[in-house]
Amino acid sequence: MNVTLKIWRQKNAQAKGKFNTYPLKDVSPEMSFLEMLDYLNMQLTEQGEEPVAFEHDCREGICGTCGLYINGRPHGPMRNTTTCELHMRSFKDGEIIYIEPWRARAFPIMKDLIVDRSSFERIMRAAGFINTNTGSAPEANSNPVSKIIADKAFDAATCIGCGACVAACKNSSAMLYAAAKIAQYAMIPQGKVEAKDRVDKMVRQMDAEGFGFCSNTYGCEFDCPKGISVDFIALMNREFLSSKACKQKHG
């Protein structure tokens, strides 16, 4: 099959970018989307042009490195699918495919389709952990956790930190990302102890990074490659409000 690619090219963070058009012939429907880009890059390299810079690593949908905005959708047209898991059989012969980087103030572009997601790191560093030292853990089964809760915490914990929620949100909000971690810990006994403090710190950091606010359009859930539910955002809101209500307790 043949496709026409319209790809955002931008030399570096300061440069002004633009769309370049690349007609690509003999694409196999069995190729993954990123293999199709590899194929383009191989041709560009051999022609002496600079290949398109994009990030990727595991190519099996778990590391969260890849993330392209494809034809108006983060990670492309398939639901619950990362860019690397997307295959060309999901496109039509002759299709024009727009490929853009994530766009958000908090995700500045570094080159072509690579964005800087260190704002996500700082949210996690604010309090995305349980304060426990190596060696101080009690026997693993001393704290039973109901299967239902454990499974729910797992669902929240499957976030891969790719940033599709921010890319999908009309407000570039990172609520789903923060909520997934906050909810995971708030639900289980190990994390409950400092849940209030955690939500306070992480939400404050999130706001400081320049993400937008949530207006409950649920675009994040729709485009999350791991299908993480906005229920966790509600849980975070609840935790946040109650942390405000009893703030004096932990100052």
Binding site: F129, I130, T132, G135, A137, P138, N143, A153, A157, Q184
Partner: peptide
Amino acid sequence: DHYTALGVP
């Protein structure tokens, strides 16, 4: 034990 304490589900 340690991972459980760290909240690994």
